[in-house]
Amino acid sequence: MSEQHEQEHEHHIVSPKIYVTIFFALLVLTTATVAASFVEMGVFNPIVALAIAVVKAVLVVLFFMHVKYSTKLTKLTVGAGIFTFLVLISLTLADYFTRAWGRW
Protein backbone atom coordinates (compact mmCIF):
# COMPACT_ATOMS: atom_id res chain seq x y z
CA MET A 1 0.00 0.00 0.00
CA SER A 2 1.85 3.01 -1.17
CA GLU A 3 0.56 6.39 -0.23
CA GLN A 4 2.19 8.12 -3.13
CA HIS A 5 -0.12 6.42 -5.54
CA GLU A 6 -3.12 7.44 -3.51
CA GLN A 7 -1.92 10.98 -3.54
CA GLU A 8 -1.65 11.13 -7.27
CA HIS A 9 -4.90 12.71 -8.23
CA GLU A 10 -6.59 12.88 -11.56
CA HIS A 11 -5.22 15.98 -13.16
CA HIS A 12 -8.09 18.44 -13.03
CA ILE A 13 -8.23 20.93 -15.86
CA VAL A 14 -10.02 24.08 -14.81
CA SER A 15 -12.22 25.35 -17.60
CA PRO A 16 -11.70 28.82 -19.10
CA LYS A 17 -15.24 29.73 -18.04
CA ILE A 18 -14.17 29.61 -14.41
CA TYR A 19 -11.05 31.64 -15.17
CA VAL A 20 -13.10 34.32 -16.91
CA THR A 21 -15.59 34.44 -14.03
CA ILE A 22 -12.83 34.77 -11.46
CA PHE A 23 -11.09 37.39 -13.57
CA PHE A 24 -14.20 39.58 -13.66
CA ALA A 25 -14.85 38.98 -9.99
CA LEU A 26 -11.34 40.20 -9.24
CA LEU A 27 -11.80 43.31 -11.36
CA VAL A 28 -15.12 44.06 -9.66
CA LEU A 29 -13.55 43.61 -6.23
CA THR A 30 -10.68 45.91 -7.21
CA THR A 31 -13.18 48.57 -8.23
CA ALA A 32 -15.07 47.98 -4.99
CA THR A 33 -12.00 48.38 -2.82
CA VAL A 34 -10.95 51.59 -4.59
CA ALA A 35 -14.50 52.92 -4.31
CA ALA A 36 -14.67 51.98 -0.64
CA SER A 37 -11.55 53.97 0.04
CA PHE A 38 -13.39 57.11 -1.06
CA VAL A 39 -16.12 56.54 1.52
CA GLU A 40 -15.54 57.76 5.04
CA MET A 41 -15.91 54.75 7.32
CA GLY A 42 -13.49 55.58 10.12
CA VAL A 43 -11.89 52.46 11.56
CA PHE A 44 -13.74 50.33 9.06
CA ASN A 45 -11.82 51.66 6.07
CA PRO A 46 -8.78 49.43 6.65
CA ILE A 47 -10.97 46.54 7.72
CA VAL A 48 -13.05 46.67 4.55
CA ALA A 49 -9.95 47.10 2.38
CA LEU A 50 -8.21 44.11 3.98
CA ALA A 51 -11.36 42.00 3.89
CA ILE A 52 -11.69 42.60 0.15
CA ALA A 53 -7.99 41.83 -0.30
CA VAL A 54 -8.44 38.55 1.56
CA VAL A 55 -11.39 37.62 -0.63
CA LYS A 56 -9.38 38.40 -3.76
CA ALA A 57 -6.42 36.40 -2.53
CA VAL A 58 -8.66 33.46 -1.68
CA LEU A 59 -10.16 33.54 -5.17
CA VAL A 60 -6.70 33.55 -6.75
CA VAL A 61 -5.48 30.74 -4.52
CA LEU A 62 -8.55 28.56 -4.96
CA PHE A 63 -9.07 28.91 -8.70
CA PHE A 64 -6.05 30.38 -10.47
CA MET A 65 -3.73 28.28 -8.32
CA HIS A 66 -6.08 25.27 -8.47
CA VAL A 67 -6.08 24.68 -4.71
CA LYS A 68 -9.81 23.95 -4.77
CA TYR A 69 -9.04 20.96 -6.99
CA SER A 70 -5.79 19.93 -5.29
CA THR A 71 -4.90 17.29 -2.76
CA LYS A 72 -5.31 17.69 0.97
CA LEU A 73 -1.55 17.98 1.17
CA THR A 74 -1.54 21.15 -0.92
CA LYS A 75 -4.35 22.60 1.16
CA LEU A 76 -2.46 21.76 4.32
CA THR A 77 0.68 23.38 2.92
CA VAL A 78 -1.16 26.62 2.20
CA GLY A 79 -2.71 26.47 5.66
CA ALA A 80 0.70 25.97 7.27
CA GLY A 81 2.06 29.03 5.50
CA ILE A 82 -0.80 31.25 6.59
CA PHE A 83 -0.66 29.89 10.13
CA THR A 84 3.07 30.58 10.56
CA PHE A 85 2.67 34.02 9.03
CA LEU A 86 -0.06 34.80 11.55
CA VAL A 87 2.09 33.49 14.40
CA LEU A 88 4.91 35.80 13.36
CA ILE A 89 2.62 38.83 13.19
CA SER A 90 0.39 38.17 16.18
CA LEU A 91 3.07 37.20 18.69
CA THR A 92 5.27 40.11 17.64
CA LEU A 93 2.37 42.52 17.95
CA ALA A 94 1.52 40.94 21.32
CA ASP A 95 4.78 42.44 22.55
CA TYR A 96 4.27 45.85 20.93
CA PHE A 97 0.68 46.32 22.04
CA THR A 98 1.35 45.48 25.67
CA ARG A 99 4.56 47.44 26.17
CA ALA A 100 2.78 50.47 27.58
CA TRP A 101 0.41 48.51 29.81
CA GLY A 102 0.74 49.17 33.50
CA ARG A 103 2.94 52.21 32.98
CA TRP A 104 0.69 55.04 33.95
Binding site: A36, S37, N45, A49, L50
Partner: peptide, 9 residues
Protein backbone atom coordinates in the same frame (compact mmCIF):
# COMPACT_ATOMS: atom_id res chain seq x y z
CA UNK B 1 -4.74 48.44 -0.07
CA UNK B 2 -2.08 48.62 2.66
CA UNK B 3 0.06 51.20 0.92
CA UNK B 4 -2.41 53.13 -1.23
CA UNK B 5 -5.93 52.84 0.10
CA UNK B 6 -6.41 52.43 3.82
CA UNK B 7 -5.28 55.93 4.76
CA UNK B 8 -6.97 57.77 1.98
CA UNK B 9 -9.56 59.31 4.22
Amino acid sequence: PLLYLISRH
